[in-house]
Design a protein around this nucleic acid. Structure first.
Lengths: 201, 201, 201, 201
DNA sequence: ATGTAACCGAGACGGTACGTCCTGTCTTTTA
DNA sequence: TAAAAGACAGGACGTACCGTCTCGGTTACAT
């Protein structure tokens, strides 16, 4: 007696309820942390039925994902670009400092950490996350570096995939593992070291 | 009637039971993943009472932590050093290739991933982990880099803390987030890029 | 954050589950005895979740109480009366012999003993039991005695509350404390002694 | 590999510890009630090891039994007799009024209730209790009635076993089931009714 | 005096059951 | 007919005690 999972009719979806659920998820993630965030808690806070959540999202991670997407609605365009003043080092410092500021704001940072952790545990969510958030952003970074490479500011044989990891990796690592403070100085040091290398010149 | 948490008497501890629990934890973490690893399951597999686990460990993450420590028993000395043939680049490649091999072995890798994720969720466990595993290893890395710096193989003003992140960070990131394959080639590229920098020379 | 005990909605209650739980409770009480009757066992036998039991009953005694009420459903009317042929002594012997038979049937007797013991330990249950079972039955007994008193078959100044205790007490005592066999002869002796008194005439 | 249950050597028994355990059992039975009285609790309060209790007593009921025996030490002689002034009715009233007073003193009454309940659940304890407390007392009662019967104050064919139940049963029932108040008046009424019977004379 | 055998306090251990919490499904009621 | 409300089976949580066991420390008797 297989009760086939019916696909809900998205056109009839209540937008007010959707927003209430996403808002409740964000608030609770910030208040109690991801571990103690529960579907029941979200439903109760949102004044929604549990079934409504199960109808539209496969996991609490997916709810949080949509909640974060809602937050960054509008500014997260596909066609966005990193600043390009011609000075790669200055541009990268500008971008990384902005990231530092964002990660230091707990209101946005806590739900993001929660989601990041969830992607480590849930491969399906990780794939969704990679496709809809991580990869587009990575392409933006790669485009900026490629332009710099064409302008002769980066070594012609530099592996840009490695370069992205090297520039943005340390920051993400410190943030995710709460290892050491996130400061503008750290951002600058990373950019300088990545560009100049560790060997004496 | 406050029933003060009594400190258990470690001298009476059953080593056989301890080993059974740690072994069961490793096996189960490998079999069902960290999310579905339960204290009840560990106790059942180990033939131990739940209370015995609760008596000695504060969380399932702590059990897994001890289990991994047991695995690396003996070789995890404080006085260990990275190889130093005088050729920093070659030495780093050797070390990172070894790490790649280790991380590609699911028997060790899966419980480690599980533990790494848990440190993201449990600050107390994270502190324990940092103190007993991460920081000692980081010091070993720093010592090797410092010797290279003194030998003139690294820039005298290079920030070695940033350097460590830059060399080992990308590997860890790929592993933890399952982003891209872990290969010897990737390890080599990271070492080369970190040492030479991205700018043309 | 006080999580107020929500009152369950009785109209939504599953009658099938309720019956399964009460049946399982009766069976288990008969099989393993009251002491080793557990909520977990009842839930398992009934194929119910533990929470379903905790939602509707405050204690295992209360479950058993309802189970016994279910058993005697229909015949336990408020308006029921003891037989009245005009011969008090014969009627009382009839009633007590029937009680003897009932108490000698372990299928009904064991759960009843279990419940009786539980009322000794749980005042709330005792009150419920007294109100819904014991007192109605006592009123039936009192009505029969009162009619006999009006008919001149009992002394006009006899304390009927004491009389009830004197007629039914010894039987209950032997049963509850397993002191001596329950026989028709014992029932007869009690009735005769209670009516005639101990003094020579 | 049967580890034969060794018989403890009673001559070496620590009397101080025994008293501490019995005292703790009485106190705790009064404080938290029988249900929540635990061997662990008794051991902790007495400053004794759990094994010391298990060595000497088979159940918590047995501990409480010995504790009550300790309380009534000295006055519980085998050769004791009920008062015999020649007036049976007056003597019985005296005895039952004394019992009423005893049962109204919670310090003695509560542990006794606890023990009484336990005998309902534990047949081994019930047998011990019957042999060492109940039966001797019953014999004393029977001896008094027998003397009265020989003196012509009771019907020659009266069943004295039934008589004992009839005289002492109602009091015990009210006490054990907390049904109605225990008063001297009730004691008197029971004695009068039992002696005179319910029929008009 | 010195084994040596027992009791004793202490408490770790494998277990059972507790009562709570949450999951994901299902059903009923509301709008 | 979507959504709220919430009952349900299931199962993990962390706690409390159970009764058994082993460990040293301390009597007390027998060499």
């Amino acid at each position: 007696m297989t009760t086939r999972r019916r696909t809900p009719d998205a056109t009839r979806r209540s937008q007010a309820t959707r927003r209430a659920i996403l808002t409740a998820a964000l608030e609770l993630a910030g208040e109690v942390g991801y571990e103690r965030l529960t579907i029941e808690g979200i439903a109760a806070r949102a004044g929604a039925g549990k079934q409504t959540i199960y109808r539209w999202w496969p996991s609490k991670g997916a709810v949080l994902f949509d909640a974060l997407l809602m937050l960054s609605e509008g500014q997260g365009d596909e066609s966005a670009e990193l600043p390009d003043t011609g000075d790669l080092e200055a541009d990268l410092k500008t971008v990384l400092r902005a990231t530092v500021d964002e990660l230091n704001d707990p209101r946005r940072s806590e739900p993001m950490r929660a989601l990041a952790v969830e992607t480590l545990l849930d491969p399906a969510l990780a794939a969704d996350f990679a496709e809809r958030l991580d990869e587009p952003v990575r392409q933006i970074k790669l485009r900026r570096l490629r332009r710099a490479q064409q302008a002769g500011q980066l070594a012609p044989d530099a592996d840009l995939d490695v370069a992205v990891d090297m520039i943005w990796g340390p920051l993400e690592r410190r943030w995710l593992h709460r290892r050491g403070p996130l400061t503008a100085g750290f951002a600058d040091a990373v950019v300088e070291t990545a560009l100049d290398g560790l060997r004496p010149r």
